[in-house]
Design a protein around this nucleic acid. Sequence first.
DNA 1: GACCGTGACTTGAATCTTCACGTCAGCGTC
DNA 2: GACGCTGACGTGAAGATTCAAGTCACGGTC
Lengths: 159, 159
Amino acid sequence: MSDSGESEPRWLAGDQLAAWRAFMRLLQTLPAVLGAQLQRDSKLSFIEYYVLAHLSEQPERRLRMSELAILAGSELSRLSHMVTRLESRGFVRREPDPLNGRYIQAILTDAGHAHLVDSAPGHVGRVLDVFVDVLDPDELRTLHRISDKVHARMEREGR
Amino acid sequence: MSDSGESEPRWLAGDQLAAWRAFMRLLQTLPAVLGAQLQRDSKLSFIEYYVLAHLSEQPERRLRMSELAILAGSELSRLSHMVTRLESRGFVRREPDPLNGRYIQAILTDAGHAHLVDSAPGHVGRVLDVFVDVLDPDELRTLHRISDKVHARMEREGR
DNA sequence: GACCGTGACTTGAATCTTCACGTCAGCGTC
DNA sequence: GACGCTGACGTGAAGATTCAAGTCACGGTC
């Protein structure tokens, strides 16, 4: 109630409401379905998978915690706990950044990389199956554009 | 790794990969942003808000737990804990279904309804601001269609 | 070169979710 | 009408996330 300005409260109706509801349902279901597959087959949550994936794409498979948090779309605190757990499973380890002791780097271990390689086909297969294959190229392009627009909007004001 | 069949592992690339990444970022950010607004202004999580909202739309503002779980896209167990908490805040109460003792109905109290009415403008304002207003009618239509298609696909096989 | 501020990260407690059972009502079967 | 099955909920413990401090390194300032 604080910052939306005090004009007439606007409302959702008609097509807008229907589209929002359909999209919100997707917002709930898609991560649940993909997460369930990962959990079942690889004992990883959705976000854990992408933490490993992002690390694997970095040179030397290492990245500062704070940058990893941004890539993974997670708060630093959450990431810290998460990395502690991944560390105890042997998938990741930590090292202070040699260049600047304020930073800590998370590093993907060989075991972590191997686990990712094992997990990827199942996950990607599901993404293709349930998402990509369902959409034609035009829809995919539109969705890409929509995602960028909404994201940009959130970045800007209000957060 | 269990059920995706063992053909050549297919992969994501190019436009598909880019679109998936952009969309996944949205999947992470949008609920976080909307949830943060609700938490800050109304002390409700995203899903709690929609539990109250769905109840408010039912005749007599009551609904079986199991149906509410489906509407809210939640597991029954999670909903049960959640309703316990909402109950302790006076927003909801439970009653056995008079027609069949196996079912339990969750009922929106007056206090719960009042809280929802207070919370709605802020939340809806944010949805308009960050989502609906950013898209043109055509994009909105396409997104609606995409959501339905992907959801239908998830419903069908594999879940 | 001590002092203060800031930013990066960690930590512990509180909260929420998930998981694996436990309970209990109704339904069919013999 | 006992018996066992099923489906709807509830619950407690384990696991994950969030919140509010706490630490610790660096950079500037005097």
